[in-house]
Design a protein around this nucleic acid. Structure first.
Length: 346
DNA sequence: AAACCGGGGAT
DNA sequence: ATCCCAGGTTT
């Protein structure tokens, strides 16, 4: 039996019953693929249910406000996915008459859709013979064929894409693509794969050469930078506060937060008071300040560790652009802010 | 080619 | 503490 046939046999026995496997509606498959980018199934599944429930059709998603889409995406991370999802829904409605594109080439024109996602949708929904290459596929193929080309090099990306394209069953592209990903996720795992019970253990080059634990090869780890975030939690007349929307480049684009003062090092109450005075957030600089968390909250992102202080600033002044604290839950915020809102007794 | 973009699961 | 996750975009 060849690689493809063995793989599909494994899949028919071992596949999970996942929500998006019960549909071939390209809109739902698209939602699932965007949600699952760099996201484990266990984390993405609740969001898939939320989006299909709140936006049952591409028209519903296109008609939503961006804040609504971001709010539903809150906590999932990589928020450009949500913004691009919304942009693409409007594009499909306005430019394509609401009809989902049905070829790899046309699907690729959607924002937030690259080679992997276009291949996945084209194969699963339209039986186009386009091989997917995700993290699972890199791992399975690098091990089975003993390929040591770094998977995050330009050469590696081309090599593995071509190999997957050579291997895909042209008669069953949808099954093949899902099978190789499921096999990577469930059996050929990053750590401690069960090679003894593996259907490929007579032919796996990594197992034969004792290289299972070094494949796939990946270049360089990015180093983490440390930042110091001071959120100014205004509490005016015990019922109003201030939020700002993050603009421009950087993390959490278009999400909301308490006014942020970033510093180059940890600051004390005196220093932050001066900075608040300079900003002129509170009329007449008439406020009292206290630190909510005595120990910095260290919020860890892939490339940054955010050493965070929440400063509680109380005042009796009336503020412009203030919102009722009862409305705080309506805004899309980073999980760091959401956790604070849940804990703090507004 | 390298940097950037989140949050959480698995070990 | 480290690696990884049904990756894509920007610089």
């Amino acid at each position: 039996m060849n690689f493809s046939a063995k793989l599909i046999n494994w899949y028919t026995v071992n596949k999970r019953d996942l929500p998006w496997r019960n549909t071939s509606n390209p809109y739902y498959i698209w939602l699932s693929e965007i949600i699952l980018q760099q996201t484990q199934v266990i984390q993405g599944t609740p969001y898939y249910h939320a989006f299909t429930t709140n936006f049952p059709s591409v028209f519903d998603l296109a008609n939503a406000k961006e804040d609504e889409v971001l709010k539903l995406w809150q906590g999932l991370g990589y928020y450009s996915r949500a913004r691009n999802l919304h942009w693409s829904a409007k594009y499909i409605v306005e430019e394509l008459n609401g009809e989902f594109p049905n070829t790899y080439k046309e699907i690729l024109k959607l924002k937030g859709v690259g080679d992997y996602t276009a291949s996945a949708i084209a194969s699963i929904c339209f039986n186009e013979v386009t091989a997917v290459v995700d993290g699972n596929v890199y791992r399975v193929l690098s091990r089975y064929f003993g390929i040591e080309t770094p998977i995050n090099s330009t050469q590696g990306q081309k090599q593995f894409k071509q190999l997957a394209q050579d291997l895909i069953d042209p008669n069953r592209p949808a099954i093949f693509n899902q099978a190789i990903m499921e096999f990577g996720a469930r059996h050929c795992k990053p750590k401690n794969p069960d090679c003894n019970s593996c259907t490929f253990n007579q032919n796996c080059q990594a197992l034969i050469s004792n290289k299972v634990d070094v494949l796939p090869v990946k270049l360089k780890k990015t180093k983490v930078s440390i930042k110091y975030f001071n959120f100014i939690v205004v509490l005016a007349n015990n019922s109003y506060t201030i939020l700002e929307q993050r603009k421009g480049n950087g993390i959490w684009q278009n999400l909301y937060q308490f006014p942020l003062i970033e510093t180059k090092a940890a600051v004390n109450e005196q220093e932050i008071t001066k900075k608040i005075n300079d900003l002129g957030v509170i009329p007449n600089n008439d406020f009292e300040i206290s630190l909510y968390n005595t120990e910095d909250i260290i919020h860890k992102l892939s490339h940054q560790h955010l050493h965070t202080k929440f400063w509680i600033v109380t005042t009796q002044q009336s503020l412009k652009n203030a919102i009722s604290t009862t409305k705080l839950h309506d805004f899309p915020v980073p999980i760091l802010i959401s956790n604070f809102i849940e804990k703090f007794d507004f």
